[in-house]
Nucleic acid binder design. Structure first.
Length: 419
DNA sequence: TCTGGGGTCCTATTCCTA
DNA sequence: TCTGTAGGAATAGGACCC
């Protein structure tokens, strides 16, 4: 989609048509999420600091993003895609790959479908889209860039709308692009390649492998060398499991009071646990990210014995991760992410005893902790030191019978017995 | 001078265990 | 019993994408 967020704003507020519109960067600290082509003429770009965007284009209309609205429109765009093929891989709200190999008999060639889809998005939703057609995903992505509107002599001119990379001409098309156009080449990699005198994909393709490995490491070198020769075997994957769920926020002013920082950590925990629950997932690893006033950023993570989506447990871990950090520099940003995700455990699974020692706000309650501790001691006194162990350890012992956590006959609690 | 928020993936280091 | 080692998991950081 062309300037997607900004275009949706213009769609909902037609009086903005023809004006420079910038989404994001409303606050003092922020960056541009999307800029209309009228704003791009002044040099405003995505990911640009808002202060810079304001300097370049002070008369632009700056708007806060409305993510839910963009999601709604994105869903409509996707339903158009899905009327052509079930093989739709969403890359972002405004971008997707479609494998139309199996749809040619129904709708005509891939290029014909590209024109149809573009036409329908324009007619039904009033938005502009550019479509790239090629035999591989990353080539199609480059082709869609080639189809987009361009800035020529300080003015935006319409693009081709659809750009096809014909079979057999992939390398001609690919090799004239700058290396930056390749997936996986950002500013750091671009600089490293420039040191080798490599600026275009064609130069990269002909670089001796050893030189590439020396500059970028084995994995990146292998991946980029393949891409530079047009080899991208990755299929269009309609569904991909979520690997992490996180929230982070940059604060208008650095947080300096520890109580304030802890309260924010609790707020992030509530947001993350709520999203885990909505997604029907539990997380085993939680990672806290802190960016200080001097932009120094660090992360601390904790892998739990028992996966959780519980708000109090997530908050307890987040606060635990916060302990030991020197917050005197002031906190500019804080984030919390959940990973190692999986479906919720069966109800009979082991619960964490620590959890029972926290109150509903996620803070350790000394009285509860004392009761948990006393109960745990009583069980061990009556049944032995190894009578109370983490469920995960018990599972491991079943796999490796004879380990020290293995349940001993005299201590096994039989059905019907008090436990 | 200024540097978001949501992610994925990779690498290096540290720690634990067999 | 002690020590060295190898492998895997956990952890931390960074590059990159939209």
């Amino acid at each position: 989609m062309d300037a997607f967020f900004a275009s949706v704003e213009v769609l909902d507020r037609p009086e903005l048509a023809g004006k420079p519109v910038v989404v994001g960067g409303v606050g003092r600290r922020g960056v541009v999420a999307s800029a209309s082509y009228e704003a791009r003429v002044f040099g405003v770009r995505s990911a640009m600091p808002s202060t810079q965007a304001r300097r370049l284009c002070p008369h632009a209309v700056f708007l806060a993003g409305r993510y839910e609205r963009y999601q709604q429109v994105s869903a409509k765009v996707h339903s158009i895609f899905e009327s052509y093929t079930p093989l739709v891989e969403g890359v972002a709200l405004d971008e997707a790959f479609l494998d139309v190999t199996g749809s040619v008999r129904l709708f005509g060639s891939a290029e014909q479908m590209a024109w149809q889809i573009r036409h329908r998005i324009c007619q039904e939703l009033g938005l502009g889209a550019s479509v790239g057609v090629a035999g591989a995903k990353f080539l199609a992505k480059l082709a869609s860039e080639a189809a987009k509107p361009r800035l020529v002599g300080g003015a935006a001119v319409p693009g081709a709308g659809v750009f096809v990379v014909p079979e057999g001409q992939e390398l001609d098309f690919l090799h004239r692009h700058p290396v930056r156009a390749l997936w996986g080449v950002g500013s750091v990699t671009e600089t490293r390649l420039a040191r080798l005198g490599v600026h275009t994909v064609g130069q990269l393709a002909h670089l001796p492998r050893q030189a590439l490995v020396g500059a970028l490491g084995e994995s990146a070198a292998t991946g980029l060398a393949s891409l530079a020769w047009g080899q991208d075997p990755s299929p269009v994957r309609p569904t991909r499991p979520t690997k992490s769920i996180g929230h982070e926020q940059t604060y208008p002013e650095d947080l300096r009071r520890p109580a304030e920082v802890r309260a924010e950590a609790g707020r992030l925990a509530i947001a993350v646990s709520w999203r885990l629950q909505k997604a029907g997932l539990e997380a085993q690893t939680l990672t806290l990210k802190v960016r200080f006033g001097d932009f120094r950023t660090l992360s601390r993570s904790k892998t739990l014995p028992v996966p959780t989506a519980d708000q109090a447990e997530v908050a307890r871990v987040a606060l635990g991760l916060l302990e030991g950090l020197d917050l005197r520099m002031g906190v500019r940003l804080m984030g919390l992410a959940a990973s190692k995700l999986g479906p919720p455990r069966a109800p009979l699974d082991q619960l964490s005893l620590d959890l029972q020692a926290t109150n509903p706000s996620g803070l350790v309650d000394p009285q509860r902790r004392a009761r948990v501790s006393a109960a745990s001691r009583a069980v061990k006194e009556r049944f032995g030191a190894e009578s109370l162990v983490p469920g995960a350890a018990l599972e491991a012992s079943r796999r490796h019978s004879g380990s020290r956590w293995g349940p001993q006959p005299s201590q096994r609690v039989l059905p019907g017995e008090d436990s």
